[in-house]
C-alpha cells in the first residue's frame, strides 16, 4: 500500500513542477497568453480548466474499456465539450463578472490541448485513481503558472494585484504588460528562470 501511495504522489507531483503543462509540455498556450492580463482572470481560467480536466479524466478513465480505439478522439471531445458547456453556463449564472471578463475563452477550453492531451496520454491508459492524481497535479501546475503570470502582468501593467492597488500614483503603468506582447515577454522570462532553477538543482 505504501508503494502505491508513493507512486500516486509522484504522478501528482509530476504536473506541478517536473512535467508542468505550461513550462515543460508547453500546451494550452491560447488561454495562457490571452486571459492572464490580471491575477483574477488567470486564477479563474485555471480553476475552470481544472474542473474540466479533472471531471473528464475521471469519466474517461472509468469508461475507457467501452470506447473503441477508432472513435476515441470524438468520444473524448464529446465528453470534454459536455463539461465545458456545463462550466460555461455555471459561470454565467453564478459569477457574471468573471464570465464577462473571460467571455469567449471559457467555451474555448474545449480545444485546449492540455485537456485532450491528458486524456490521450494518461486517462485512456491508466486506472481512475491514477488519473485523478494526474488531473489534480496537472490542474495545480496549470493554475499556478496562470495565476503567477496574471500577478506579474497586473502588477507591472496596472500597479495592482488581485485588484488591490499596491503601487501609488507615482507609478506610470507599463501598458505593454497588459497587451499580448506582455504575455509573451513574461512567459518567456518565466520559462527561462524555470529552466535555470532546474539546472541549479541538478
Amino acid at each position: 500500500m505504501a508503494v502505491k501511495f508513493k507512486e500516486l504522489f509522484s504522478v501528482f507531483r509530476n504536473g506541478i513542477w517536473k512535467e508542468n503543462p505550461i513550462m515543460v509540455l508547453v500546451i494550452g498556450m491560447c488561454p495562457t497568453l490571452a486571459v492572464t492580463n490580471s491575477a483574477e482572470n488567470g486564477l479563474a481560467m485555471g480553476l475552470a480548466t481544472a474542473f474540466v480536466l479533472i471531471s473528464s479524466e475521471i469519466v474517461i478513465s472509468t469508461i475507457k474499456n467501452f470506447i473503441p480505439a477508432n472513435v476515441r478522439i470524438p468520444s473524448f471531445i464529446l465528453i470534454i465539450a459536455t463539461f465545458v458547456t456545463f462550466t460555461d453556463y455555471f459561470v454565467k449564472a453564478f459569477f457574471p463578472t468573471i464570465a464577462a471578463s473571460l467571455s469567449i475563452f471559457i467555451p474555448l477550453i474545449v480545444v485546449n490541448c492540455l485537456i485532450l492531451g491528458r486524456q490521450e496520454a494518461f486517462a485512456s491508459k491508466n486506472p481512475v485513481h491514477k488519473s485523478i492524481a494526474d488531473a489534480v497535479g496537472m490542474s495545480i501546475g496549470f493554475t499556478w503558472v496562470l495565476t503567477l503570470l496574471g500577478i506579474i502582468r497586473e502588477f507591472f501593467g496596472m500597479g495592482s494585484v488581485f485588484g488591490l492597488q499596491i503601487l501609488g500614483e507615482w507609478y506610470n503603468p507599463m501598458v505593454i504588460m497588459l497587451l499580448p506582447g506582455g504575455a509573451f515577454l513574461t512567459l518567456g522570462l518565466m520559462v527561462g528562470i524555470y529552466n535555470h532553477i532546474n539546472r541549479e538543482v541538478e
Binding site: 470506447i67 472513435v71 468520444s75 464529446l78 465528453i79 459536455t82 458547456t85 456545463f86
Partner: peptide, 13 residues
C-alpha cells in the same frame, strides 16, 4: 458508443 455518449451528454446539458 458514440450515439450513447451523445445522448447522455445532451440529457445532462
Amino acid at each position: 458508443v458514440l450515439t450513447t455518449i451523445g445522448i447522455v451528454s445532451a440529457l445532462l446539458l
